[in-house]
């Protein structure tokens, strides 16, 4: 198992390199001329040229890219054109805010959705199932930034219960976390329900009943652990949803996380900030995906065996 994890970590390197190449290339096409952004408007052509030379912008593309990769390894991803602050440190400074938002949303949605999914599956075709499924269907069909705005309208502007934006204290976290969490809960509820329904039909459930196990025991001891496999995958796959959702929620609520950082950097054409943030997000996603796979192996002995065999 440990060898498997190490192997995966090694395999991550080319993926990250390629991803960063792609993004670096794409952003170098779009970035415009940073010199114009940095220098005051009345700068002379000589001053511009000197700055270009100093920043290495006249070097061939691959030279620039390798310099950049070398930087990544050392935790140095350049400076923001706008604030002149270190990209890596700015990103890391904002990361806890996004993790707090995404984490709260994820925990909140898992707590709601897994019991709800199981409950609807067990009551299939009853009004309880229908009610749960309608909730989930609305949840997945709603753009979550709109949900955020509606929550602001209701809780902040109409009822005056919660702040409509900014950060500081748990009160500020409630609405953004709800915004991300409700859509996520709806998604996971749907997966949990269909995975549970699938498991309920399996032959080994009949075997367990035929042994004389009670309904409760059959569902929780035999059903749930099997159903957890696709649920864990689904939750794992939703991390990119969590990030996207958080980015939008951050914009709606001015929550100073990575999403807002990227959105602001795009408007300000702050290329190193955008490039660095996207690459760091990808590394983050790769690590999260690996963690999901490890949990996955814990749930399913077949996969665990596969991992160990492959080494």
């Amino acid at each position: 198992m440990i060898r498997y994890i190490l192997k995966r970590l090694v395999l991550m390197i080319p993926t990250i390199l390629l991803t960063s190449l792609l993004i670096f290339w794409a952003m170098s096409l779009t970035g415009g001329d940073p010199v114009m952004t940095i220098l005051p408007e009345n700068a002379t052509v000589e001053q511009q040229e000197a700055l270009r030379e100093e920043m290495g912008l006249n070097d061939p593309f691959f030279v620039q890219y390798f310099r950049y990769v070398k930087g990544i390894v050392q935790g140095d991803m350049g400076e923001s054109y706008v604030t002149r602050l270190d990209v890596f440190q700015t990103f890391m400074g904002r990361l806890p805010m996004t993790l707090a938002l995404g984490g709260t949303a994820l925990i909140f949605s898992v707590i709601i959705s897994i019991p709800l999914g199981i409950w609807t599956a067990l009551n299939q075709n009853s009004w309880k199932d229908t009610a749960g499924m309608i909730f989930a269907l609305f949840g997945v069909s709603m753009p979550n930034f709109w949900l955020g705005l509606m929550l602001v309208l209701l809780f902040s502007l109409t009822l005056g219960l919660l702040p409509s934006g900014g950060s500081g204290g748990v009160r500020y976290l409630v609405l953004p976390a709800l915004t991300v969490g409700l859509g996520l809960a709806a998604l996971i509820t749907r997966t949990t329900r269909s995975s549970m329904l699938d498991v309920l039909r399996q032959d080994y459930m009949t075997t367990a009943k035929a042994k004389g196990a009670s309904r409760r025991r059959v569902i929780y001891r035999h059903g749930l652990r099997n159903a957890m496999i696709p649920i864990v995958t689904a939750v794992g796959m939703q991390f990119s949803y969590v990030m996207t959702g958080s980015a939008l929620a951050e914009k709606v609520f001015s929550w100073p996380g990575i999403g807002l950082l990227v959105a602001d950097s795009i408007t300000k054409r702050d290329t190193p900030m955008v490039t660095g943030s996207i690459i760091l997000c990808c590394i983050l996603m790769a690590i999260i995906n690996l963690m999901v796979d490890i949990i996955y192996a814990y749930c399913d002995p077949r996969i665990k065996a596969q991992y160990s065999r492959k080494g």
Binding site: T207, A210, D300, P301
Partner: peptide, 24 residues
């Protein structure tokens, strides 16, 4: 029924590939 199943009457299923719980 629970006391009867498996104790008084037991069943052998058709397809051994699916009749066993894969995670136990």
């Amino acid at each position: 029924l629970e006391a009867m199943r498996g104790n008084d009457v037991a069943m052998i299923f058709q397809d051994p590939m699916t009749a066993l719980n894969p995670v136990m």
